[in-house]
Design a binder for these strands. Structure first.
Lengths: 341, 341
DNA sequence: GTGAAAGCGCTAACAT
DNA sequence: ATGTTAGCGCTTTCAC
């Protein structure tokens, strides 16, 4: 019971308690091999007994090395980003690197703030969602002098490296499948997010594919906030009241799609013969529904994994050949709600 | 184009570019008021032009202050913790404090590792889920000398401060409501998580309440992994095959409850007359279902908010009277799946 | 295998 | 309102 003041312990305390120089204590605690077994044991015992926790701030300043990877994403409550995080964490697990998450709420100004905040901790790398950033953000990322991986999207030019899928192509593919299946009167429902560029690109690809088949979106509605499942239900009901002859509903995400699906099942609609549906994202949730919604997997976990692998490689073996653009291919599942063409 | 080496910028660079001393530059960048307007502008201009991002590592070491709050939770993919995070972020937003998230996957060893990792960055406070921790974790938390708030649960003794609900009581309340409604043959489905202490406590309270009414759980099943909605469906089907005379199903979370509910609706069962259901958590998702599942709100956002408020108060006004135990009261919603007694 | 000295980039404390 | 000095707790480097 020697430590009465409420001061965090330092290397010096461990040094004094063990009778070994600070320098050697530091070596032991960093698992360096050039220390005798006897000394090592003495030190570890003292450190453990004192309850010493190293000060990474001092260590990082001295070594100019920080084992953090900044991960900057729009939202956590989305189902998609937790999956991406799973991929990232899995890869970083035993590399000595640690992910640190920042959330932007789809706001460029907040992204800028979060990025500034994170970069000021001098992380070893950055994984950031999307290719659209403010000029200031791009400048910061470039100036940081660390590996930067932009994820989710490949429709654009990366600052450094990118891993993702083409949302424009994904939208086109769904559009093509719908045209091929012979649906004619298409309704679209999605988030009212001018800042969700990936949703926008999917929609662009979608309308483009329909246009090629000589079809236009017959009705559309955008929402924001609230329970996505409930919104899907409400919007679907409203849209079909407004435009009863629709024979296909395309939803910008699976959650609202599931809401719509449940509603239509309740109504006893004949799916997919009389009316078809499709969502986007391949969320695990869908597997519990009575009928499988047609959807497209966004390769979320793999995107996380590949991005983290690039960061690790760039840090640990910077001279290797490391890819700078990875485009993954999402697969369309027809489920039970989309006729095959 | 003067900076060719790939060295991050320092205060000194800004000082030289602006012709103002390092110290004054530091004052400007920390928004201190004791700087003349003219100097301030000179400095800001230089900093912006160079693209200077301060080094928080050095700043933290010098000032012995770190504006981070460690938030340690079992999982992100749970629906519950994103809500807690929302509460925390909302409060910290304009306090200058920043949450940093660590995930334990419900594993005590991982909790210990994550905690050690985070504490080594010397955060200003810790918010950690649950009251059950390894001895080493408890020792670290106590030795850290910073405010520690344990959240979610109040059935136990906190290290420092706690904010949550009584899961034992929550389980009892649902149990009582079931007994009172006259259900007799009860089935239970939940996660196979010996380490999810809160689920365990709910189950304990639940069986205790039933016992008082002279009832025992007639069948039970535990699962792990997979889509919760799908699991709920499968388990429900299996259990009713095995024990067809059940008249109530209690699920340890809303997601599996929703799966069960969808299955029973499909089967055309008479809910809640012939068979009743209840879940736990009040997830937003439920609002999109055709029938409202009985559930109990776990006050997630408020728990996050209150915990963050305590941290902020302890840091900013340590002399104020700050509560150390906050028990929130979850409310039972009967929805459409639980008869009123 | 171990230790001593210097310094990482900033800020506290004290000048002026 | 601005500058000077010392030092935060480590690691790097070099000496032994």
């Amino acid at each position: 019971m020697s430590r009465n003041e409420n001061r965090p312990l330092t290397l010096r305390d461990v040094s004094e308690a063990s009778g070994v120089s600070e320098m050697t204590v530091s070596r032991v605690l960093r698992n360096r091999t050039d220390v005798s077994q006897a000394t090592r044991e003495k030190v570890l015992k003292a450190a453990k007994q004192l309850g010493y926790v190293p000060n990474k701030i001092a260590g990082a300043l001295a070594s100019q090395r920080v084992n953090l990877v900044a991960v900057i994403i729009p939202s956590l409550s989305n189902m998609v980003f937790p999956d991406v995080m799973t991929g990232i964490s899995g890869v970083l697990e035993n590399t000595g690197l640690q992910p640190v998450v920042g959330v932007t709420d789809y706001l460029p100004e907040k992204e800028e703030k979060v990025l500034y905040e994170m970069l000021s901790w001098r992380p070893s790398g950055v994984i950031i969602a999307g290719l659209e950033h403010s000029d200031a953000s791009r400048a910061m990322l470039r100036a940081a002098g660390i590996p930067v991986v932009e994820i989710m999207d490949v429709d654009g030019t990366p600052i450094d490296t990118m891993v993702g899928i083409s949302h424009r192509r994904a939208g086109r593919e769904i559009g093509n499948a719908i045209v091929k299946a012979g649906y004619k009167r298409i309704g679209f429902m999605g988030t009212k997010m001018p800042l969700d560029h990936r949703a926008r690109k999917r929609f662009e690809g979608f309308t483009q594919a329909l246009a090629k088949g000589g079809i236009e979106v017959a009705d559309q509605e955008f929402y924001s906030g609230g329970s996505a499942l409930a919104k899907g239900r409400e919007m679907t009901e409203a849209m079909l009241k407004r435009t009863p002859d629709l024979d296909f509903l395309y939803y910008s995400n699976d959650m609202i799609g599931a809401g719509g699906l449940l509603y239509l099942l309740e109504q006893g609609r004949d799916i997919p013969a009389q009316i078809g549906l499709a969502g986007f994202n391949g969320v695990e949730l869908l597997q519990g529904l009575p009928t499988q919604l047609a959807t497209m997997d966004a390769c979320r976990t793999e995107i996380g994994r590949r991005a983290a692998e690039i960061i690790v490689a760039r840090i640990q073996t910077p001279d290797d050949d490391i890819p700078t653009r990875i485009e993954l291919t999402p697969t369309l599942s027809y489920g039970d709600t989309l006729r095959r063409g």
